[in-house]
Nucleic acid binder design. Sequence first.
DNA 1: TATGAATGAGTATTCATTCAT
DNA 2: TATGAATGAATACTCATTCAT
Lengths: 206, 206, 206, 206
Amino acid sequence: MEKAIQRRTNAAQEKRNLIVSAAREVFAEVGLEGASLRAVAAQAGYTPAALYFHFDSKEALYAEVLMQSLEELSDCVLTAAKSAATHEERLFAVAMAFFAFYLNNPRDLDLGFYLFRGGMKPAGLGKDRDTVLNRALENALRPIAVEAVALGATLQDANMLMVDCFAHATGLLLLLHTGRIRMFDASAVEQMEAYLRDKIASLVGE
Amino acid sequence: MEKAIQRRTNAAQEKRNLIVSAAREVFAEVGLEGASLRAVAAQAGYTPAALYFHFDSKEALYAEVLMQSLEELSDCVLTAAKSAATHEERLFAVAMAFFAFYLNNPRDLDLGFYLFRGGMKPAGLGKDRDTVLNRALENALRPIAVEAVALGATLQDANMLMVDCFAHATGLLLLLHTGRIRMFDASAVEQMEAYLRDKIASLVGE
Amino acid sequence: MEKAIQRRTNAAQEKRNLIVSAAREVFAEVGLEGASLRAVAAQAGYTPAALYFHFDSKEALYAEVLMQSLEELSDCVLTAAKSAATHEERLFAVAMAFFAFYLNNPRDLDLGFYLFRGGMKPAGLGKDRDTVLNRALENALRPIAVEAVALGATLQDANMLMVDCFAHATGLLLLLHTGRIRMFDASAVEQMEAYLRDKIASLVGE
Amino acid sequence: MEKAIQRRTNAAQEKRNLIVSAAREVFAEVGLEGASLRAVAAQAGYTPAALYFHFDSKEALYAEVLMQSLEELSDCVLTAAKSAATHEERLFAVAMAFFAFYLNNPRDLDLGFYLFRGGMKPAGLGKDRDTVLNRALENALRPIAVEAVALGATLQDANMLMVDCFAHATGLLLLLHTGRIRMFDASAVEQMEAYLRDKIASLVGE
DNA sequence: TATGAATGAGTATTCATTCAT
DNA sequence: TATGAATGAATACTCATTCAT
């Protein structure tokens, strides 16, 4: 009996995932603003109406897409943390993993900003979902602060470092995606790495 | 004859400006995505159709808005440059002026990213306009590099610094506007100032 | 065997009733036009699809709701008939009971008109059901004619009186529900009572 | 100059009328609830979007339809008033004109009740329009009261008579349109006439 | 008997744009 | 230079209904 329910639930979840994947593909192709429910439905092989069985609204679907994206991001970051030996290396690896994720998945960055901002109809996404998304984002970023503390930073400084990394990475990616960074003949990756090395150096301090 | 043309051109330019101003107001109120040609036209006291006499398309109008915004930004930066005595102070002032401009005009940042990215229908804005906008942006940022060079940086390092400042400011502003920065209990302005002081110190450095 | 069938039938009937009740509640809350099968199903604790096991279509369900409503109406009228001593009083009581029922259950009146009219998809409700509903309505109204005959009216006059009462009550209720009656500063109940007293007086009269 | 404006205004008004006529036709064919903007637009030879140039919303269009209907009704009633010599005849003629109008234009009655009730999205139609419609309806009904007063009724009685006539006519028409009146083998027109003769007799009365 | 999933047709409305005047 | 009128495509979303399970 339980098994039957479980099976059904799994099937439902699979279909949700299928739709979410379709949405990501559509986002990647036409961008967030250009993406319509119709397009997502078509990509998923569904009728627009069918999506409403799985998601309450367009925004709910988008939120789910973001949620999965954040989870993937978190995985990337955690994996990176494991692959490094020293705290210094770990801090570097972790921040670069964050950076690399959005380097490889540019539309996910758009999505995050779209959803985290006023793009949503009902004042954000409803508090519950907003809270959940916030937490997911925090999960992905916290390792940076953790490593900073391990390297001797105060909690406050660690927090500031985390924000700085977030901001810097985000800024570089934005420049990159909008084609602005070429303008200045600079490489985003190198620039990010240089930024991090600097930060770490001044943290560990000579 | 020339005068007549001149007069006509001036009148035309005034009307363009009027429309551009209306557009900025509308953007400030409802944001970029929420803004429609109709709304802009209404704000300017025109019929939607009338705008097409002054601008080829919605995107062309938006580009003009961005152009004016970049010119204003440039003015702010140049003014800041004049108000400081030493190169160190000037570098700081100039970068903070850039930051402050977008802090006070959040929608202008949106507009920039919208236009510099894929938001445009016909593959960007056409090369001409894109080039013009690029140059305007460069104008606003170059003072940063200029001061860095004056402080002894190589051309390449100065360029990187400029990009870094751009990226960092942009990143912080994005975090701020999307409400993410509160999440980490940090102040965008202080964070930007700290970032700059660090950079300048290591430039002038030991 | 018969018992088994009987039991099954009873259970089925109970469920039908449950759904019908749910439908009446929904109608009372959001009105006829605003009511959807989904809403009714939800109110009844069912899936929309489940209703199709109990009713052939939305219209069939509505017809059943109307049927129950008419039966209730009939009960009210008959009860009123019993509570009065003379034929005069009885005629008055019976007609006012009809009026009062729809005064207290406005949506039931809507439903009646909706179903009795072109609201139905397949040309009414099918003859059978239409006949059944007609008979139920007749049952509720006949006491008026019966009392009129008892007071000396010809069959034809009694019939006309019945129709008149029906029409007048209906008209007043419509005015009341649409808010038109306030416009004329009149009370629906008093107006109905006055109408009836007049009619009865002229029937018993000179 | 004024003439030009006038001409333009007239042209616009003609188109509005064309659309309103189309709407009435559609209503007559498929009823109020079944009528969609698309259908009205198609009937008028327009694109749905085009209607929005002439009317703010579907409801606004419907309100206009009702307005025109009420004006026509008013004309009918006033014409009838002129065609009769005595006050008695006039009262009769006026009330029957009201009745006859809706006898011949059944859908107009539907429309009235739809719009005067909660069928409208934004809480009625907005107070302004509601007031205007109310006044139009009053205009059409007032002659009944006027004649009653001329026949010696108090203001209050005249008002009640007016409401009674309205209600009775409305009730009979509803019965007629829903097919209920045949059920009782009665003629709506005769019934209305008889009702009026009674009322007038008791007004002039012994 | 009931459900979850899906459909297809339908809804009002908005948008950037065009064109005759 | 500007308008009024019109278009066609797009939007998210709802509905009654069906069907395999």
